[in-house]
């Protein structure tokens, strides 16, 4: 069954949080994982749920040879300026 907008955002957030430090997730990995559990979920809903998580600062895009979605964390390479 398709998730509501809020439930979908939480579902994605939990997925990203669980993967943190173990596997880098791309936006398409998130979409595929959601559709596997909820095949009737609209793809656009997933896109915009990710957008809401990013815009709200709960998730961030990172780049390590490719672009990934992660929970905000301290940049390992950076020293405070």
């Amino acid at each position: 069954m398709a998730l509501s907008k809020e439930a979908l955002a939480e579902y994605i957030y939990d997925m990203v949080a669980k993967a943190q430090g173990k596997k880098n997730l791309k936006a398409m990995d998130v979409q595929k994982a959601v559709l596997k559990e909820h095949p009737d979920q609209n793809k656009n809903d997933i896109k915009f749920a990710i957008k809401d998580l990013i815009d709200g600062g709960r998730c961030v895009y990172t780049y390590f040879g490719g672009s990934y979605i992660e929970i905000p964390h301290e940049e390992g390479a950076a020293k405070k300026v």
Partner: peptide, 20 residues
Amino acid sequence: WKHGGIVGVLGYGSGIIGRY
């Protein structure tokens, strides 16, 4: 140089390339 990472501006996943 090391490049990539987490830096960016709010809401954007593109346009900023972290470099240290």
